[in-house]
Nucleic acid binder design. Structure first.
Lengths: 197, 197
DNA sequence: TCTTGCACTGTACGTTCGTACAGTATAAAG
DNA sequence: CTTTATACTGTACGAACGTACAGTGCAAGA
């Protein structure tokens, strides 16, 4: 239904307003604050709008009645796209990903590192990429680790060959590293992030 | 100072508790809820703890006195790590990144796609990676775009050579694509995300 | 032993919050 | 022309909220 009413408030605009508020305040607005945001003079108008957003699954209420963002920040995931030969438009949308949970929803302690160099380029870890590393993970064979070998830090594949531990590059023009003195595993690389803009 | 007091509450444990609450509720707890979380019987104890967290820059208060997470979810960024030959431990920490802002702090409409195939492998975009695409961006030469060429979707480099537009793969074993009928730019790839665990 | 600081308890108070309900202007539908 | 739905206004109320302040038990240091 298209509405020509001047009072008509587009839900998508409301979503943007809520998003911006949440981005700044890291919380959802109270009903009074919704009134301020949308120039309402009655809290009931705010209740009305919020209920619309709940109906569309953008917001939700917990068991205590507190408001929380359900899909406010979800990015629609449109499906699979070919990076080889083109494919018919897949997806049919519907699905969406909470990237905050996707990347950071892990229990352990994490840190990040900017990667310099190209020894892991065959693995798709390029110069300038950021790796998120989970501390304390005891690596399994094949894991990518951030490790300190003989006092120097590097990113490599971890391989434990019956107690004989080595750090393997993904780029064959670099040597395999075996510790002569010490090897400390800083953590396991759990994700790689690259930003273009 | 190390404290053997039974009542002693480690701030790092408090941070984890706050994080878990925020992860579930997408907001910070009220003072009453802090009491419930830490088994306090007085709200003043909650105020006391929150002030500690404010002093350590983990939380902050806005101009209205509302609580918000300052560095609660920041991942410490330890600096640059060599993926070639090892390098001395860089970093000296101190820095930290808010990955939520880092990845999603863009004004435009975004969607994501799972990449299939290896035509962009030289660019470090591998099979199974997720690309975040910003809609409506008019691509510049060299941008990676998600585009619909002659009715089929693909991820490629965009190049406009004096009106002669082509989609270029990063993998030379794939052909350059020129539209015979239609070309629709879905958007520009703004980031690539890969998850290992 | 006395003092000081820390980590709380217990109580009180004014403000803000979410909820509820009655009412209104407008537009679309029958 | 009447009915219905939409998008609000205005008012009221109890519960929850943040803040303040006086007081307590404990441990460390002088």
């Amino acid at each position: 239904m298209y509405c020509t009413n001047v009072q008509y408030m587009d839900l998508t605009k409301a979503v943007v307003t809520f998003r911006n508020f949440y981005r700044k305040q890291k919380r959802l607005p109270s009903y009074q604050e919704v009134c301020d945001l949308f120039n309402y003079s009655s809290k009931t108008a705010a209740v009305y709008l919020v209920n619309k957003l709940i109906e569309t699954d953008i917001l939700e209420k917990d068991e205590k009645g507190k408001l929380l963002p359900k899909k406010l920040f979800h990015i629609p995931h449109l499906g699979i796209i070919k990076a080889g030969y083109p494919m018919p438009a897949e997806g049919s949308l519907g699905d969406s990903i909470d990237f905050y949970e996707y990347l950071l929803g892990m229990p352990g302690e994490m840190f990040s590192l900017t990667v310099s160099g190209d020894s892991m380029i065959e693995e798709g870890i390029h110069d300038g990429d950021i790796v998120i590393v989970e501390r304390d993970s005891s690596p399994r064979n094949g894991d990518i680790v951030a490790a300190c070998i003989d006092g120097e830090w590097t990113v490599k594949y971890f391989k434990n060959d019956n107690g004989h531990v080595g750090l393997y590059p993904a780029n064959p023009s670099y040597p395999v590293l075996f510790p002569t003195e010490s090897l400390m595993i800083g953590g396991v690389v759990v994700s790689v992030i690259r930003k273009y803009r």
